[in-house]
Design a protein around this nucleic acid. Structure first.
Ligand code: MN
Ligand code: MN
Ligand code: ZN
Ligand code: ZN
Lengths: 137, 137
DNA sequence: CTATAAAATTGTAATGATTACAAACATTTA
DNA sequence: TAAATGTTTGTAATCATTACAATTTTATAG
């Protein structure tokens, strides 16, 4: 499916700016924040405003095209909502990795009378690389 | 175990301020934020500074006495780290509920070379109460 | 093709949580 | 007691996010 079709399918009119922000999220693997998206696209869209980046990401999040990844930082980072997955953040180097292989979490028994819309899982610890650096204490 | 013993056991000197913040977290069931803790304790500790609340919560978090609960709000809320559990936040009324009955998540296979320190699970949706208000669409 | 309405984008100014930092105060140690 | 260390405080920055009105662009109607 083309990118503009993805936006249309979610009820979003595919303006140039919106498509470029979608493309950037699609290509980025590292969960960019607003500042990074703005800095990356501003050369290509010289009139781009940071407010538009905020507006667009809010729209994407509301229409479930993207989701905000809330890490231990105090800034939101963004991810396309395509495949649900968890995130691992290394406390040493700050790197964020996608974690796709998580066991299904069945919430029916735990929350029988609730309507669950979203589950976000954030794992923190030390990544494989940083383990090597300090193997023994 | 007494509260001061809990702090000592985590390598924290139990000053009066620290014990009162610990007590407040222990009694509070609703994951208070810094402002609320400050407002609640300021009458009892007239010289209390909000910076001290921040300092103390950072100390508690570092020493694993408490943990920061990051919700969709843009402010941190705090919880004693006693029993690991997930959180459910209602998108209608904003209420936050503890969710203790979650299946164990075994990360060994998913992250074999990582050292996992913490897993935080945030579930969002509509709570039982708010379901009743708008049952049909 | 215009005129009008609606939607999208922009720039600037607030907001508000958090942090930085140095001074003041309290406690421990020698 | 004196010095060192640890704790608390107040004020001033920082910085991500939001509010909001103006401007520009796009869609719709005549
Ligand atoms: Mn991801
Ligand atoms: Mn809790
Ligand atoms: Zn690492
Ligand atoms: Zn509710």
């Amino acid at each position: 499916m083309q990118n503009d079709a993805v936006l249309k399918a979610h009820g979003i009119k595919p303006s140039l700016t919106r498509m470029m922000i979608f493309d950037y999220l699609n290509a980025a693997k590292h969960h960019p924040n607003v500042e990074e998206i703005y800095q990356a696209l501003q050369p290509k869209i010289p009139t781009l405003s940071k407010t538009t980046v905020y507006n667009t990401l809010h729209l994407f999040t509301e229409k479930r095209v993207a989701r905000a990844v809330m890490l231990k930082d105090q800034e939101n980072r963004y991810d396309l909502a395509s495949h649900p997955h968890a995130h691992f953040q290394c406390t040493k180097c700050g790197k964020v990795e996608d974690v796709f292989r998580l066991p299904d979490i069945h919430l029916d028994q735990a929350l029988p009378k609730h309507s669950v819309h979203d589950v976000s899982v954030l794992i923190s610890g030390v990544c494989a690389e940083c383990q090597k650096d300090e193997p023994l204490i």
